[in-house]
């Protein structure tokens, strides 16, 4: 069959796939600009009134602040633990290493409902304070595998000769790690942390168990509003979230 004809045969499929992938995000952005009281696609004029009301709503502002604090702390924690663990796994030989590496990925595989519930129950049992501490720990656990995987992949392709060169130049192993290895790994670590931040900012399922009234996060507000009645303000809030995530993503991409 002709090459051009084949490409044509694929086009309905591509239209469906990319519509399924992208239109949900597009409609959220569009409905945030509506002049109606319901989140509809603006047909008679656009306005930014929902953004104005969003930023005048103290509950929303406080949720954005909470989500930012949680995201940064969780990303830092996941980044540190993920990097440390990836280092250990690539640079040492221990029995059952492959199985243990799979265990490191479990937080991605077990339903976040179960992770959230488990952390809530265990936390209250051993006295981990609810609110920030529990949410940050939960998000760090959930995003830890991303950093682990990314840093491990980078370490596996790392040119050992660079470290050997550093040693021949008189640096000891710790100096080599700090001056040679870490700077080369830094883009991967940061990229992992950016993903962790974005994931944390949007996480709802596990978070719903861990929030306290003072630490409501953005996704929790969105979820509550979806359940109780829709205001275009939610579209505006979601759009802010999308913009934030895309900026973070572009930054992460540039760094890597």
């Amino acid at each position: 069959m002709n090459e051009r004809l084949q490409k044509l045969a694929f086009s309905p499929l591509l239209v469906v796939v990319y519509a399924i992938l992208l239109l949900p995000v597009v409609i959220v952005v569009l409905t945030s600009l509506t002049v109606n009281q319901a989140p509809t696609i603006p047909s008679d004029g656009v306005s930014l009134e929902w953004y104005v009301s969003l930023f005048q709503n103290s509950q929303m502002i406080s949720a954005i602040t909470t989500s930012t604090i949680v995201g940064i702390c969780a990303a830092l924690l996941a980044g540190t633990m993920g990097t440390i663990t990836a280092f250990g796994f690539v640079r040492s030989e221990i029995p059952y290493k492959e199985s243990l590496a799979t265990v490191m990925l479990l937080p991605l595989m077990i339903s976040p409902v179960i992770v959230g519930l488990a952390l809530l129950r265990f936390g209250s049992q051993v006295g981990i304070p609810t609110g920030y501490v529990q949410i940050i720990l939960g998000h760090a656990v959930l995003t830890f595998p991303f950093v682990f995987l990314i840093v491990r992949a980078r370490l596996l392709t790392f040119d050992d000769r660079l470290e050997a060169a550093s040693r021949t130049l008189g640096a000891n192993s710790l100096e080599t790690v700090c001056n040679v290895t870490l700077p080369i790994l830094a883009p991967s670590i940061v990229a992992g942390m950016v993903i962790a931040f974005v994931f944390s900012f949007g996480e709802f399922t596990a978070t719903q168990f861990l929030v306290s009234p003072e630490t409501t996060t953005v996704p929790v507000i969105i979820y509550t509003q979806i359940q109780t009645g829709l205001s275009p303000e939610i579209s505006a809030l979601a759009t802010v979230l999308v913009a934030l995530a895309l900026v973070a993503g572009a930054l992460g991409d540039r760094i890597q």
Binding site: Y18, L21, L22, V28
Partner: peptide, 27 residues
């Protein structure tokens, strides 16, 4: 890139978007 892009958007927002499509006021 277009396949990757939605991964940056929180999953709750994407479900919300799907719902917006099929609401009685949706397109």
């Amino acid at each position: 890139t277009l396949v990757l892009l939605p991964l940056w958007v929180a999953i709750i927002i994407r479900f919300f978007g799907v719902r917006l499509f099929f609401l009685s006021s949706g397109p």
